[in-house]
Design a protein around this nucleic acid. Structure first.
Length: 609
DNA sequence: GCAAGGTC
């Protein structure tokens, strides 16, 4: 019987694969790493026949890239030399036990099947596993399973359609790893050494550069500059109020406001002289507020930090722990659509025992259930974030913040399975000598998902008195009002995450880390607004770095997202065969070499800012 | 004392 060794990217997937292949039957044994287990079972592969199977996993990347030890001392070479310094692939001490398990199992196996996540990084992790396996057993045949979720049926199907590792995707990641290391380290050492020697107050600071850190900082600085440079503009508008049945109805001008005082005055006077206003239309329409989409990581970080007032980093740390304890599904996902196979009713059933929101889950199971909306994203690796097991607020080792995160995930999940909120909206539009004004009234009839998703508000407005189309009236109040435009506000953490997401800076798993890092490096700081919302402001150092780099080299500025975006494009080119790994590394290093030269020549600009 | 990306 052939011996087959399967390796997943993380322990949870290894267990799911073993369970699927073994029809629920498998034997567990420990390895010397306390998180990693080996699961033994049997399975009849279409291509390999009845086999004895061991399923295990790594925990993310197995190896890491670093400079040869000759270059690890900061004074051992000029920073620019790091662009071509010798580099070595190492298995970090923390992964030695995992590597040893892979080698031991590979020695006694004829086949290795890679079960890492089916994304670019997963493909590279697959080559890291394969390399370790081949060192121990050069004749092992390496195969790859393609799967997009861990439902048993799907896993079995993947096991029957094995392919090979996609070397192009792995090569793209290999290029990224080398570039991030060389460029990040070179600029970090350069900036740090130069600025430390010039400024006593920076003598002890690490002034890091990273292809994600700096564009992230750039967004914060850009907004700060817009706030700083803002000049308020005066505008004018026509305000109309009509009092009927003891209610003041405020009509807003369809032109909103204009910046030309004379024109507003002319329009205003014409209205006044024209006599009464006429009701042009009364439209009563059903209105709804849509049920939220299934939860992705980016959305968890954005909405979580908005509603829970916790930083995205803290939210992700709690989500990770909740996942490890088995309370929620995998917390790093881009998917906002549930697979058809998933049993949503069973998941809702688990929530019925909750004191606060169990009643809502119960109602859905008794008939109010509605299928979740399907978003546009599917990473083909993980489902949307959802609660798996019920968690009581007093559970052992559960902090109140962790419970807040769980509460958000659970309420959001129930909300996804409930109908839109529904109501009626009445819009009264009046015509006053050609100028149009509207007043709106909203009556909420059914709150539906908003009952459980109490983070959002959608409430009935003050009721409108009845109006009839064609009737005429003289407004009670008609005034010309002066106003001023407001300055833009500083970015909040959800704003920043949205910008990073839109510009491809970082991944769902790393965005929170980048924000935490630039705060830790004292490039930005958080400042509470009057309403308690935290806003992000650059420090003097953070602003000086970005402004300085922007002045030296705008198009290719280190503080703009363009360089990182180009790298992303080139990685896609490698994946699709238009470029090679070595070619991209060479081109990108060449490009950053120019930036480096320019920055070295213009360091005085940094000093002046 | 450097990066970003996985995950524990």
């Amino acid at each position: 019987m052939p011996r087959v060794f399967c390796v997943a990217e993380k322990p949870s997937v290894a267990k799911a694969v073993a369970s699927a292949l073994g029809g629920g039957r498998f034997q567990t044994s420990n390895t010397t790493n306390r998180f990693i287990k080996n699961y033994e079972t049997e399975f009849r592969f279409r291509e390999l026949g009845e086999s004895s199977v061991v399923v295990s996993s790594v925990a993310g990347h197995l190896t890491s890239l670093d400079f040869d030890s000759n270059f690890s001392n900061w004074r051992s070479c000029r920073p620019i030399d790091l662009f071509e310094a010798a580099i070595v692939k190492k298995t970090p001490e923390s992964n030695k036990a995992i590597e040893k398990n892979i080698k031991t199992q590979s020695r006694r196996s004829q086949y290795l099947i890679i079960w890492t996540d089916c994304d670019r990084e997963g493909e590279h992790i697959g080559t890291e596993i394969a390399n370790a396996a081949k060192e121990a057993n050069p004749r092992i045949d390496v195969l790859r399973a393609r799967f997009s979720n861990v439902e048993a049926q799907h896993i079995i199907q993947a096991a029957g359609n094995l392919v090979r590792i996609d070397e192009k995707q792995a090569a793209a990641v290999d290029a990224r790893i080398e570039l991030d290391l060389r460029i990040g380290s070179a600029f970090t050492r350069f900036q740090t050494l130069e600025l430390q020697s010039r400024y006593a107050e920076l003598a002890r600071e690490l002034i890091s550069y990273g292809s994600c850190q700096f564009p992230t900082l750039g967004f914060v600085v850009d907004r700060w500059l817009r706030v700083k440079k803002f000049v308020p503009e005066t505008f004018w508008l026509i305000k109309v109020v009509y009092r009927r049945e003891n209610m003041n109805v405020n009509f807003s001008w369809k032109r909103n406001h204009l910046f030309d005082r004379l024109i507003v005055m002319i329009l205003y006077e014409r209205c006044l002289e024209s006599g009464p206003a006429r009701v042009a239309s009364v439209i009563k329409k059903p209105a709804s507020k849509w049920q939220p989409l299934p939860l992705t990581t980016v959305e968890l970080q954005k909405q979580g930090s908005r509603f829970l007032r916790l930083s995205s980093k803290i939210i992700m740390d709690h989500a990770e722990k909740l996942y490890q304890k088995g309370f929620i599904s995998y917390p790093r996902t881009e998917t906002d659509q549930f697979d058809k196979e998933i049993n949503l009713q069973a998941l809702l059933g688990k929530q019925t025992e909750n004191q606060e929101w169990g009643q809502y889950a119960q109602r859905l199971l008794e008939g109010e259930f509605k299928s979740p909306r399907r978003g546009r994203n599917n990473d083909k690796a993980h489902p949307p974030i959802h609660p798996i097991a019920h968690l009581a607020p007093s559970g052992a080792g559960i902090s109140s913040d962790m419970y807040k995160v769980y509460t958000f995930i659970a309420r959001r999940f129930i909300a996804c399975c409930w109908d839109d909120a529904k109501g009626n909206r009445t819009t009264v539009e009046i015509d006053w000598f050609g100028e149009r004004f509207t007043a709106q009234g909203l009556v909420v009839l059914q709150k539906n998902y908003l009952e459980v998703y109490n983070y959002e508000k959608w409430e009935s407005s003050e009721e409108l008195p009845p109006f009839m189309q064609g009737e005429i009236f003289v407004p009670t109040v008609a005034e010309m009002v002066e106003g001023k435009t407001n300055a833009p506000t500083y970015l909040t953490e959800p704003d920043l995450i949205a910008m990073m997401d839109a510009n491809g800076i970082g991944t769902d798993a790393t965005m929170a880390d980048h924000i935490a890092k630039i705060e830790d490096r004292k490039y930005i700081f958080k400042q509470p607004r009057q309403n308690g919302v935290m806003e992000l402001r650059p420090s003097t150092l953070g602003a000086a770095l970005i402004e300085g780099y922007d002045q030296m080299n705008f198009e290719q500025s280190l503080g703009k997202p363009f360089l990182r975006k180009d790298m992303e494009t080139k990685m896609k080119d490698i994946c699709e065969g238009r470029r090679t790994r070595d070619g991209v590394v060479r081109e990108e290093l060449e490009r950053y070499r120019e930036v480096f030269a320019k920055v070295s020549r213009n360091l005085n600009i940094l000093r002046e800012v």
